[in-house]
Simulated assay, not measured.
Amino acid sequence: MPHLAHIALIVRDYDEALAFYTGKLGFTLVEDAYQPAQDKRWVTIRPPNAPPHATTILLARATTPEQAVAIGNQAGGRVILFLATDDFARDYAAYRAAGVNFVRPPATHDYGKVAVFEDVYGNLWDLVEFAER
């Protein structure tokens, strides 16, 4: 059955991206393997406590000028990824304490609680606790 295996996120530097995602957001490093034929690394991460076969984010280092231009703006200024949580207050407080920059404060909507933060490159993310339906 088809499913999303990875979502590519263009980054400037693997280690810089890993420091943010694993160090500040607590993501898990799934794989970091050097690919000598292409002189790149295959680096995948997933949110903390995600199931082992959950979709991962592939940190893809920009290798062309066109790719470099997209760093931090892959969604044209819109939120690109949605990080669901089971405890908004806990994770919002932990991310703020870790120095994550929230560009929109917490708000409550019919669908749940949400705040928008930016990653190390400026990509926008929703931290969201969905309301029970």
Rank of each mutant, 00 (worst) to 15 (best):
2 P>Y: 12
6 H>M: 12
6 H>P: 03
7 I>L: 13
7 I>A: 15
8 A>V: 03
11 V>W: 04
11 V>S: 04
12 R>Y: 01
12 R>S: 09
13 D>V: 01
13 D>A: 02
14 Y>D: 07
14 Y>F: 08
15 D>E: 13
16 E>D: 14
19 A>W: 03
20 F>N: 00
21 Y>P: 00
22 T>M: 04
22 T>N: 03
22 T>W: 01
23 G>Y: 06
23 G>V: 06
24 K>R: 11
27 F>E: 06
27 F>A: 06
28 T>V: 14
28 T>S: 10
29 L>P: 03
31 E>W: 08
31 E>D: 14
32 D>Y: 07
33 A>E: 12
34 Y>K: 12
36 P>K: 05
36 P>A: 06
36 P>T: 07
37 A>H: 11
39 D>N: 15
39 D>S: 13
42 W>C: 04
45 I>Q: 01
46 R>Q: 11
49 N>E: 15
49 N>R: 14
50 A>E: 08
50 A>G: 09
50 A>T: 07
52 P>K: 09
52 P>A: 12
53 H>I: 10
55 T>N: 02
57 I>F: 13
59 L>G: 01
59 L>M: 06
59 L>F: 02
60 A>P: 01
61 R>N: 00
61 R>A: 15
61 R>D: 00
63 T>L: 10
63 T>M: 13
64 T>D: 04
65 P>T: 05
66 E>H: 10
68 A>S: 14
69 V>L: 12
69 V>A: 14
73 N>A: 01
75 A>C: 11
76 G>S: 09
79 V>L: 02
82 F>W: 11
82 F>I: 14
83 L>E: 01
83 L>A: 05
84 A>T: 09
85 T>M: 10
86 D>Y: 09
86 D>P: 08
87 D>S: 11
90 R>H: 14
90 R>Y: 13
91 D>I: 04
92 Y>I: 06
92 Y>K: 04
94 A>K: 12
95 Y>C: 02
96 R>S: 08
98 A>S: 10
99 G>Y: 05
99 G>F: 06
100 V>I: 05
101 N>W: 00
102 F>R: 08
104 R>K: 12
105 P>T: 15
106 P>K: 08
107 A>P: 05
108 T>R: 14
108 T>M: 11
109 H>L: 15
109 H>P: 04
109 H>T: 15
109 H>D: 11
110 D>Y: 09
110 D>L: 11
111 Y>C: 06
111 Y>P: 07
113 K>G: 03
116 V>H: 04
117 F>D: 04
117 F>L: 05
118 E>R: 09
119 D>F: 02
119 D>K: 01
119 D>M: 02
120 V>R: 02
121 Y>A: 12
121 Y>W: 11
122 G>V: 03
123 N>F: 00
124 L>H: 13
124 L>K: 13
128 V>K: 01
129 E>G: 05
